[in-house]
């Protein structure tokens, strides 16, 4: 049976070769909803085979940009290019074989099992005469295994915990077997342990399967820790991009987020760690009185 032999092949070796060709980027991209422009004249190149994280304050257009890159939003002007070709003029099914997208709040129908959800990721590869190929079987089995939810396969999606559910959705995009994976705030609504679990999983996908990962994240420290390439946005434009160590500076955090902060090396990974510097008020003391805090650089 081809399935078993397939599964024993080290997929990472096979995949990394094809991954090197997935060049996703944008030229002169302007995005908006109705009259309201969100992203203006943006140029972008996403490094293939790496983890890119997009950060920026609320309403800076980072999710909108991600949606356009995933072909969920039609550009008002400009192009989204995959290997030099205009993404919005390629067949829908073909695009779905190249780029996987995990939306911000994906919803599954009531009573759907984890297995069925993950199997949905195979849709771009299926036809009415090819509803469950050996390849489908291998990819879904692998996706469940990669995300550690094989044991949950028969459970209903709506009865899972937040962290389990997010892993099920990520498994669906893994099963889709695309070279590029876009994720819109995949850690929102998760507690800190599950946030780290999801981010570790994404790094592992990148490392083991050679997938190009692009994620929008809220937490600047996590972004700096997990990104190979960091894109910082503000008001629909890219303010800075590159290695997190170069992008994240006191000055930029102030200019982009309006936050006084100092940037120190993360004690574990040595990546930039942002520490808010001069909060106007420290937390309230027992009597409810607000006490001005000492600037961080004067402490100790």
């Amino acid at each position: 049976m081809t399935v078993r032999t397939d599964m024993t092949v080290r997929t990472d070796v096979v995949r990394t070769e094809s991954t090197s060709t997935a060049h996703l980027g944008a030229e002169g991209l302007t995005l908006g909803y109705a009259e309201h422009t969100v992203v203006t004249d943006l140029d972008l190149q996403l490094p293939p085979g790496r983890v890119t994280v997009i950060v920026g304050p609320n309403a800076c257009g980072k999710s909108t940009l991600l949606r356009a890159l995933g072909r969920l939003l039609k550009p008002a002007r400009g192009l989204v290019l995959l290997d030099g070709e205009d993404l919005h003029h390629r067949p829908t099914r073909w695009v779905a074989q190249q780029i996987g997208v995990l939306a911000q709040t994906p919803t599954a129908p009531e009573g759907m099992t984890v297995f069925d959800l993950v199997a949905r990721g195979r849709q771009p590869h299926q036809r009415w005469w090819r509803q469950w190929s050996a390849e489908d079987e291998a990819r879904v089995t692998e996706a469940l295994h990669q995300t550690g939810i094989t044991d949950l396969a028969d459970r209903h999606v709506d009865e899972l915990s937040g962290g389990q559910r997010q892993r099920a959705w990520i498994a669906m995009t893994i099963a889709q077997d695309t070279r590029t994976l876009l994720l819109d705030e995949p850690t929102t609504y998760l507690d800190i342990a599950h946030q780290i679990e999801v981010l570790d999983l994404l790094r592992r996908l990148n490392h083991d399967l050679g997938r190009t990962i692009v994620a929008v994240l809220h937490d600047l420290n996590q972004a700096a820790r997990y990104a190979d390439h960091l894109i910082m946005m503000r008001d629909g434009r890219i303010v800075a991009h590159g290695d997190p160590a170069d992008v994240v500076t006191d000055r930029r955090v102030h200019d982009v987020f309006g936050l006084e902060a100092i940037v120190v090396p993360d004690p574990v990974t040595a990546t930039p760690l942002i520490v808010p510097a001069v909060p106007r008020y420290a937390r309230a003391r027992g009597n409810g009185e607000l006490v001005p805090a000492e600037p961080a650089d004067r402490i100790g």
Partner: peptide
């Protein structure tokens, strides 16, 4: 390797 799983 893990056995191939089939839709339940």
């Amino acid at each position: 390797a893990p056995d191939g799983l089939r839709p339940p």
